[in-house]
Design a protein around this nucleic acid. Structure first.
Lengths: 210, 210
DNA sequence: TAGATAAAGTTATTTGGTCACAAAAGTAGG
DNA sequence: CCTACTTTTGTGACCAAATAACTTTATCTA
């Protein structure tokens, strides 16, 4: 773990803090598709993302889903911070978009570190900052963009976080994450294919030029 | 100022911090309708809300608006925190929904206090926490609710923050804040009136039972 | 290879939102 | 207090996007 830790967080945290994390942190690898956190769960430890991508989803009472944003390398989940510090249930679901590696830190420690380490304080504040901005962008998308624009944005983002021009999702899955119907997504994807921006295949979309 | 300060924040902050705020803070009263903060502005001082209600709006590049949430008594604006700590431009517009009173605190101080006062740290974190949750609720509304449900929620919220069963807005103004068209709002309001939930008058809506 | 299942395509219908105009309610000047 | 003007609200025709129901195509497996 210490290697991944210093590689990823070495420039961010003081040595003393790195050492503490090394002491109490739990290194964990999780496979693509696995659920890290479910809505309504209490959180006992906070994840520091070492590698991979996590997607954060919101769900209403009727099983309708919406993708909020992706967490990437070096991020932490401000929602989790919120839960930890406020001792409240999780408001979101977190799923590994790719294989990922995490360091899990006990809640009590992170409170302690807030007063002890300036770098930790900055890290936590910066995380909140980032998450607020991501959420704002999500709001922008659903409030101001039409579905075709949202789809384009989604495809781009998805390709970017996966570092791949191929997206291995069904139309239904995309529809869930954008909270619309499969028919709508199929229609819009077909339109994009006709514009030679993508090619469609069963279970997978190739991005040509967006 | 010291009176408003201790009344509002006395139980929250240590005495030493209260004293510092009293030293450097600037008391300010602003009338209903005035703009506290405009998108793209840099923030030089952070407002602590003493009384009144502030509404926070988002705008896209085409002048389309969306109400994000209200700030009430004792809140501070996490967006402003974000700006201050990150030294970035404001992403939102803040307008006084009612007459309001604020204490303005210089940015440099608030960074200093983060390491100095535990209560300040908690206050800042709690603010982020609250704002994230408000934003999440906003996302829920625009993503999962139909326009009629959003309108009901809006009317309730507006009545609540104004502590009044009357809402003095035009249909057009409501439409702006919910980011839809005036026609849609008029139609839905008419439906609500037919259900005896509200009565409509020029420039003002009375809530009967929601 | 047949049957089952999952994904994608098609069409008709419904709904929510836009446009353009009309009516009503306030406002100001004579 | 009457008229011209502005602002706010109401309405019908229209359009586009979402939904539902069904068909076709691809994939898996027994």
């Amino acid at each position: 773990m210490i290697k991944a830790l210093t590689e990823r967080y070495g420039t961010l945290f003081e040595d003393a803090l790195l050492e503490e994390i090394d002491q109490v942190g739990l290194y964990k690898e999780i496979p693509e598709g696995s659920t890290l956190m479910e809505i309504g769960e209490y959180i006992k430890s906070m994840p520091l993302l070492v590698s991979g991508v996590i997607k954060i989803l919101r769900e209403d009472g009727h099983g309708d889903e919406l993708l909020l944003y992706f967490l990437e390398n070096g991020d932490t989940c401000a929602m989790t911070l919120t839960c930890c510090l406020g001792h409240t249930k999780s408001e979101i679901r977190a799923i590994a978009e790719t294989d990922a590696a995490l360091i899990m830190v006990p809640v009590q420690k992170m409170e302690e570190w807030l007063s002890k380490y300036k770098s930790w304080r900055n890290f936590v504040l910066q995380s909140y900052h980032n998450r607020l901005n991501e959420l704002l962008e999500t709001v922008d998308s659903i409030a101001f963009l039409k579905m075709d624009e949202r789809l384009l944005k989604y495809l781009n983002k998805k390709a970017k976080v996966n570092k791949d021009h191929n997206i291995y999702s069904t139309h239904q899955e995309i529809a869930y994450e954008l909270h619309t119907s499969r028919v709508v997504i199929s229609r819009l994807l077909k339109k994009l294919e006709n514009m030679d921006k993508i090619t469609l295949n069963r279970n997978h979309i190739t991005i040509l030029n967006l």
